[in-house]
């Protein structure tokens, strides 16, 4: 009996030790990964400076006209750093990007849009002048500001618009099995409620992880999503690299 008890104690000790060993190993793996990312960060920073100084020839010619609409997703906590945002927009203006959408989850950038518009040379607000998604203004940089409420909540509002139309049209046959709405009708409904901006070609994410943080779903069907790292360590070279990489992307839209 005592032997069995001792064996049980021994087994529990072994299990406990094994568990401790696994925990240690897990932490070790994550330390190694952190070191890997740290090294990668240094390499990227170095490459970024080389691009900025024009050392790397392939980044000298940018076909920026391929990038018609750019979206920037900023982590809400970093969105308070308006000076960084303004510097970023200034870089984009220098590169020749004409249409930018700024997004953060909590709408912090939306609140400071007047300040940003005033600080960025010649920037105008994207709005009524750009009906039907036609990006007409080529002389100034047009800025659009979006937040989480322009995503799912906007879809719910648009759904109400469609529902009202559906009820008023009288086509309310309960047995109707066909499709009531089309995707183009949905796009129109989103425009009606003021959330129908164009689809960005490229979305740059400034934050800890590669994630679009609830950017309006309807507008990112075929958008290239690139993680740029935290806003506080943004670099001109990495911006050039991201745009250059985008201009070389081939899309076949399902074909």
């Amino acid at each position: 009996m005592d032997f069995k008890k001792e064996m049980r104690i021994l087994c529990s000790w072994i299990a406990h030790f094994g568990d401790l060993l696994l925990r240690l190993l897990w932490h070790l793996v994550h330390v190694i990964i952190s070191l890997f990312y740290f090294t990668l960060g240094i390499a990227n920073a170095l490459e970024s400076y080389l691009i900025s100084w024009g050392v790397l020839k392939r980044y000298r010619s940018l076909h920026v006209n391929k990038l018609r609409y750019l979206a920037i997703v900023v982590e809400s906590e970093e969105a308070y750093e308006t000076s960084k945002i303004i510097a970023l927009l200034q870089w984009l203006a220098d590169i020749g990007v004409k249409h930018v959408c700024l997004y953060d989850m909590e709408g912090i950038l939306k609140k400071s849009k007047d300040f940003i518009l005033a600080k960025v040379d010649g920037a105008v607000l994207y709005g009524e002048t750009h009906e039907n998604n036609k990006l007409l203004d080529q002389t100034h940089m047009t800025l659009e500001f979006a937040s989480f409420c322009d995503g799912k909540e906007a879809v719910a509002k648009a759904a109400n618009v469609l529902f009202m139309k559906y009820v008023k049209s009288g086509a309310t046959d309960q047995n109707q099995k066909g499709h009531i709405f089309t995707e183009s009708q949905m796009t129109e409904a989103l425009k009606t409620i003021g959330s129908g901006g164009p689809e960005p070609d490229l979305l740059l994410v400034y934050g800890p992880a590669r994630c679009h943080l609830g950017f309006p779903a309807w507008r990112i069907r075929y958008t290239e999503i690139v993680h740029m790292g935290p806003l506080k360590s943004m670099k001109y070279g990495s911006l050039i690299k991201a745009i250059h990489k985008f201009t070389r992307v081939q899309q076949n839209y399902g074909k």
């Binding site: 679009h212 609830g214 075929y222």
Partner: peptide, 19 residues
């Protein structure tokens, strides 16, 4: 090597790691 969602789970991927 592509970095787009290609019209997949756009609604559900707001807080999702894209790899």
């Amino acid at each position: 090597g592509e970095s787009r969602l290609s019209n997949f789970l756009l609604w559900q991927s707001a807080n999702c790691s894209l790899i």
